[in-house]
């Protein structure tokens, strides 16, 4: 692939004390890709997401977004949807989405008035319609179902037009039926807004259904006497052949299985 990667991780390590969570992660993510990250519990999936998000600083290594080193804090260029607590309980659905616009346009009051307020509300309403919450704009999150809350969290993130959207097990707490609806929604948004998405999931099937690329994190080496001394890295990196059309077939064809070079 000759396209410049949107996100590039070079030799990234994450350590907590003497416990190594991630070791030597090298990763280039192309714009427009949908990367699913799978792996057993404790394999550092969420740690990887947190360093990309800027919530944590890698112990070693470089992360570049659009060729620029990443600031070690969260910013509006990386949107996120967590499994829970992604939306603000004290704001209505509309208030939750408008919030991102208010922060940008009114640094001191974080509130908009007059025509700016009207424009922001219209933009937010359009985004809520796009995620299927047209009828719930004035409800509080507590009045929304789990699936609707996740729809709201996605709308809230997308209003900022992030360069990358990070999803941390976004559908893990939802019923299977609702989950299928959410899959359709996220694929639709992915193609409509030309998003680059990185999604951490426990569900292998979900990873393959949605992703254009599946990364499996695991420990490549294991010391039974000191299991914490080796970290996880991407042991499988599968690029799936998919049409850009979101109405893709249920069973995606695996084009290449590129086991990353052994460095151990």
């Amino acid at each position: 692939m000759s396209v410049e990667p949107i996100l590039s991780l070079q030799n990234v390590w994450v350590e907590y004390g003497d416990k190594i969570v991630l070791e030597k992660v090298d990763l280039d993510i192309q714009p427009g890709s949908f990367v699913s990250i799978v792996g057993p519990s404790g394999a550092g999936k969420s740690s990887l997401l947190r360093v990309i998000l800027g919530q944590e600083r890698p112990t070693r290594g470089v992360i570049e977004l659009d060729g620029q080193p990443l600031a070690p804090e969260c910013g509006p260029d990386r949107g996120v949807v967590f499994q829970r607590y992604s939306v603000f309980p004290h704001l209505s659905a509309l208030g939750n989405v408008v919030f991102g616009l208010e922060c940008e346009q009114a640094p001191l009051t974080a509130r908009l008035f007059g025509s700016a307020r009207k424009a922001a509300r219209e933009q937010a309403e359009a985004m809520l319609v796009a995620v299927g919450l047209a009828d719930s704009m004035h409800q509080y999150p507590a009045q929304l179902s789990g699936g609707m809350q996740q729809r709201l969290a996605i709308a809230q993130a997308l209003i900022k037009r992030p360069r990358i959207l990070l999803l941390d097990e976004p559908f893990g707490a939802l019923d299977p039926g609702i989950r299928a609806d959410m899959h359709a929604l996220i694929q639709q948004l992915w193609s409509d807004y030309a998003l680059t998405i990185i999604m951490v999931t426990h569900d292998i099937r979900e990873a393959f259904t949605l992703g254009t690329r599946v990364l499996a994190l695991d420990k490549r080496r294991h010391d039974p006497h000191a299991p914490h001394r080796f970290g996880a890295t991407a042991v499988y990196d599968l690029t799936l052949n998919k049409k850009s059309n979101p109405e893709a077939p249920e069973k995606p064809a695996v084009l290449e299985i590129a086991k990353t070079q052994e460095n151990a």
């Binding site: 998000l53 919530q55 804090e73 969260c74 910013g75 509006p76 990386r78 949107g79 996120v80 967590f82 829970r84 607590y85 992604s86 939306v87 603000f88 919030f99 991102g100 208010e102 922060c103 940008e104 640094p107 001191l108 009051t109 974080a110 969290a153 809230q156 993130a157 209003i159 900022k160 992030p162």
Partner: peptide, 23 residues
């Protein structure tokens, strides 16, 4: 308050001050 909320607010462009008064 859930750490996710503060993280989320930052990804929406909120400053420390804005997190204080709006979140």
């Amino acid at each position: 308050l859930p750490a996710e909320q503060v993280i989320k607010a930052q990804t929406l462009g909120a400053s420390s001050w804005q997190i204080m008064i709006r979140v």
